[in-house]
């Protein structure tokens, strides 16, 4: 039953026009960034590297695909949650608004399985979005701008990573970035279980992300102890893979915190949906 309904959920996601907004917007954003880089990219980074390129040996063009992929990820990781929530925030509440939740909930499938199948479908949608992002950022960008060594600004200042030392870092980054986006998906599914329309959960998801991000960036001691528990703090954890050396302890901590978030959020959604009187 779980698999059958997950399959149903895919059919619905594929048929809904809004599912393509995310892919379209992502593509458009990246094209804009690429256009900007192509047109005026060297001036964009020259101020960073002005004092720098005489002192270190650097292979190839600085403004290469590896660097631009990093810039793209950094710029977009704050916007992609909206694209995720647009689809996942609608999964339960959209059916309540449309009235189909009535039909669904009078079928022999349990309510827990309804929520879980929506979670799985949302997870796959988020994965597709992440893979599309990875494809554009790594394959297309490298094809347009070539590859080479990569300069990054990390916690120890400007660092040059060797060309051969980069690809695996991206691979791991995308896995952690996916986990962060999955948390956004679970959050909006959870909010979706409480709502009767899809605007509410989408806006609240973004509201929570903005609020948590602000709390995370405020340098106030009262917030210091909770920062680590905000999932938004870990949305930037993909960058840890561009440190040298990499702190695996921090990364595992982020991964654990994100996984716990997912489990808790989905559990809340399951409990709420099971208790809910369906009156739409």
């Amino acid at each position: 039953m779980l698999l059958k309904n997950t399959y149903n959920e895919f059919i619905k996601i594929i048929a809904k026009p809004r599912s393509y907004i995310g892919l379209g917007v992502l593509t458009a954003l990246i094209l804009v960034i690429l256009f900007a880089m192509k047109a005026d990219g060297s001036s964009y980074i020259s101020f960073v590297t002005a004092s720098f390129d005489q002192t270190l040996s650097f292979n190839g063009n600085i403004l290469n695909g590896n660097l631009i992929a990093f810039i793209i990820l950094q710029m977009l990781i704050v916007h992609i949650p909206l694209l995720v929530a647009l689809v996942t925030g609608d999964l339960i509440s959209g059916e309540a608004a449309m009235g189909t939740i009535r039909m669904l909930a009078t079928k022999p499938i349990s309510r827990t399985k309804i929520v879980l199948s929506k979670f799985i479908a949302g997870a796959v949608y988020t994965l597709i979005l992440t893979i599309w992002l990875a494809f554009l950022a790594l394959v297309v960008v490298k094809w347009m701008f070539g590859t080479g060594d990569m300069i990054v600004l990390n916690s120890s200042g400007l660092v040059i990573l060797q060309e051969a030392d980069i690809f695996w870092r991206y691979g791991c980054s995308f896995i952690v970035a996916y986990l962060a986006l999955l948390t956004v998906s679970s959050l909006s599914i959870c909010l979706s279980a409480f709502a009767e329309n899809s605007i509410g959960p989408i806006v609240s998801t973004m509201g929570i992300i903005i609020l948590f991000t602000i709390i995370g960036s405020l340098d106030v001691t009262v917030f210091d102890s909770i920062k680590i528990f905000l999932f938004t703090t870990h949305m930037a954890s993909w960058r840890s893979f561009f440190e040298d050396p990499i702190s695996m302890k921090d990364i595992w901590q982020s991964i654990s915190i994100l996984i716990v978030h997912n489990i808790v959020l989905v559990s809340i959604a399951v409990i709420k949906f099971n208790k809910k009187d369906i009156t739409s």
Partner: peptide
């Protein structure tokens, strides 16, 4: 073993 319509039948409009 039950088939039902409550209030009014609602379907996935886009399907």
């Amino acid at each position: 073993n039950i088939g039902c319509i409550i209030e009014k039948p609602d379907f996935y409009r886009y399907l």
